[in-house]
Design a protein around this nucleic acid. Structure first.
Length: 104
DNA sequence: TTCGTGACGTGCA
DNA sequence: GTGCACGCCACGA
């Protein structure tokens, strides 16, 4: 039922609250959304996002600093370019969460 | 209903 | 730094 929608909305709100030039991990978003360790749910939610979404999903990456999408994927390129545009540089295929990690 | 899979996280070797 | 295993939630066959 709408329970899922409620969680999804919570995830969207958290992601939308991520400041520019910062990145948050799936687990971080899930935790802030009150989902606990449901990081998988966050990934599923982002994958089901519409192509015309206004949500800054590109600011959501894995805890390893690695992006959630495959390097050969188009979404990865888009995310990488977006992050670079916000001032977030990447080391190879990884992000320096050490300094860019969202400190909520 | 049960099994397998997925844009994940943490712990351990 | 890399690889393996377990746990978490949700969905499709």
């Amino acid at each position: 039922m709408d329970s899922n929608q409620s969680k999804q909305a919570a995830v969207w709100q958290v992601i939308n609250a991520i400041p520019r030039g910062r990145v948050a991990s799936y687990g971080q978003v899930a935790r802030l959304a009150g989902l606990g360790r449901a990081a998988r749910f966050v990934g599923r939610t982002l994958k089901q996002l519409p192509p015309d979404t206004q949500l800054p999903w590109h600011r959501v990456i894995r805890s390893d600093g690695h992006l959630g999408l495959p390097i050969e994927s188009e979404g990865f390129k888009r995310q990488k370019e977006r992050l670079a545009e916000e001032g977030v540089n990447m080391i190879g295929s990884r992000v320096s969460m050490r300094h860019y990690g969202w400190d909520a």
